[in-house]
């Protein structure tokens, strides 16, 4: 639990005149489950985009296992082992669920990790779907993504990341738009993945669920880091209380 897998140093990003991320620094240890919270517009998704190369920072550095990945292209960062989900689901709508997973399985990273061979790719894809809770004997793996409900697509998104065999998994509001029962069934999956040694960075609005599994939580407000503490103490923090101001109760219930 001591090795640092991700190190962020003084990250800044402005969109026009709006400061989206202001001087954010933090570290993620190997095997850690780190939560990132903050009110709407506090820069959570921008932070994820900065870490995964979809947006280039104005200043600051991101190190992944000691290697500077600042400003690298998204596919290169993914190639190194950082997988991410999108808050707005991005499945391949015209392909069936298991074929959605063939695409990351085709990447050079997966082929390298599997020793150049990946012959039984369909089986691998269906195994992955089972990992996120889709029965292999059901119709779900064979259904076209556009016909699946939103909660399913969220889990498909998770499976697409797992297909990459990531070392760092970044979940951008995975639970948003999921029903209570879907959240309840997805939560153990994330706990299990983390238990297997996968480092997870979780941006989340569902605070109650997040606090149950996270080791540590960082709070953002207006792009700045306002708190960094274990989940039990973060809501005691005055700055966090002020940021959520009244919406705290709502956040707890959601």
């Amino acid at each position: 639990m001591s090795e640092t897998i991700l190190k962020v140093e003084g990250l800044n990003k402005n969109f026009g005149g709006v400061a989206a991320i202001v001087d954010v620094s933090f570290e993620v240890k190997k095997g850690e489950l780190l939560g990132i919270i903050g009110p709407n517009g506090s820069g959570k998704t921008t932070l994820v985009n900065l870490l995964t190369g979809f947006v280039k920072p104005d200043s600051g550095r991101v190190f992944y296992r000691g290697v500077d990945i600042t400003g690298k292209k998204p596919y290169k960062i993914a190639e190194m082992g950082i997988a991410r989900t999108f808050q707005m689901v991005k499945p391949f709508y015209q392909l069936s669920a298991f074929k959605n997973l063939i695409i990351p399985l085709y990447s050079s990273r997966v082929r390298r990790l599997r020793g150049g061979m990946y012959g039984d790719r369909d089986d691998v894809a269906i195994d992955l779907l089972e990992d996120v809770g889709f029965e292999r004997d059901s119709f779900v793996p064979y259904k076209v993504a556009s016909s699946l409900p939103h909660g399913y697509l969220k889990r498909l998104e998770l499976a697409r990341c797992l297909a990459l065999r990531p070392e760092l998994l970044i979940l951008d509001e995975l639970f948003s738009g999921m029903s209570m029962s879907e959240v309840a069934s997805t939560l153990p999956i994330i706990e299990r993945l983390n238990g297997e040694g996968l480092t997870i960075l979780m941006v989340e609005h569902r605070l109650k669920e997040l606090f149950r599994i996270a080791h540590r939580v960082i709070a953002l407000n207006f792009g700045s880091k306002i708190a960094d503490s274990p989940p039990g103490e973060i809501m005691e923090n005055e700055a966090v209380k002020a940021a959520y101001l009244g919406s705290e109760e709502e956040g707890e219930d959601a």
Binding site: P91, L95, I103, S107
Partner: peptide
């Protein structure tokens, strides 16, 4: 399938470690 993926959602293909 990768090409079809690019048609449906190019950002998702990018995050799948594909150029």
């Amino acid at each position: 399938l990768v090409l079809q993926g690019i048609r449906d959602n190019d950002r998702a293909v990018m995050s799948g470690a594909i150029n």
